[in-house]
Design a protein around this nucleic acid. Sequence first.
DNA 1: TACCCCCTTCGACCTACTTGAAGGCAACCC
DNA 2: GGGTTGCCTTCAAGTAGGTCGAAGGGGGTA
Lengths: 141, 141
Amino acid sequence: MSYTIHEVAQKMGISTYTIRYYHDHGMLPFVKRDENNNRVFDDNDLEWLNIIVCLRATGMPVERIHHYLDLVQEGECTVPERYEMMKTQQERTLSEITALNKHLSTINFKVDHYADIIENNKPDMFVPTNLRDKPTTDQTA
Amino acid sequence: MSYTIHEVAQKMGISTYTIRYYHDHGMLPFVKRDENNNRVFDDNDLEWLNIIVCLRATGMPVERIHHYLDLVQEGECTVPERYEMMKTQQERTLSEITALNKHLSTINFKVDHYADIIENNKPDMFVPTNLRDKPTTDQTA
DNA sequence: TACCCCCTTCGACCTACTTGAAGGCAACCC
DNA sequence: GGGTTGCCTTCAAGTAGGTCGAAGGGGGTA
């Protein structure tokens, strides 16, 4: 199967601008062109793009992803380095999820607090203005 | 208690550059100055900063955070809008965590795959070069 | 007085897009 | 056949959110 840049954008949930950016920066080495110079993507390109999206979404810089793709093309002897990269990315992603869960509980606390005020019409009347609804720490929520 | 910008940076896990950036952009309205024009932070400032960090980390643009802080200062009548903002942020954060978990399973699959190759010295010998170690979709992992 | 360290402001730089301008090719409509 | 639509191209400029360097000042200690 072959796809236009718009089809790929829709499938992957990213913009055509972003795809062109990745292509222009050498991260999609197998993409072909048709007779009008338009980019033509196949399933292999989609799989490359899928892993690019995965690594970007988990915070790997474009330059590192480029390096990883180079390693893949260099063959088996680069497996240990690739392993280390993925290990690092795994740990980073786990900490990111942990951090987001902490922040989520802070936000949950706010949502509940506001819901309470709205439902029970219960303003914090005895607290000075600049301390009303003061931000909470992650721990309190 | 009062704190220097460096103490605050350490406590919050962000750089002094970032704190100055937030202050310069009006997001820390209560920060004082000492006789040498140095910024002086108190516990109330820390709590504001804590929620700024929480909202930024969960993807809220600086401009929206600024708006939220304005709402807090305007008083009780803005509670419904603040509630909507936090609801939106809650949903966004939940989807972000879901997405990260999907990406994590892709990465886990890679890590396991590489570990297998390294431990068992088992190259994918019968697969053509540009398909070796091809990226997997989130579903396969 | 010299040195060191931390602070300040201002402006430049960086990453990863995002958008705009200018123009080409093709397909449809009348 | 000419006009319009619509997608594509390239290249350059703009944006968000920091990040950093230069230049300079204050204060403490030797």
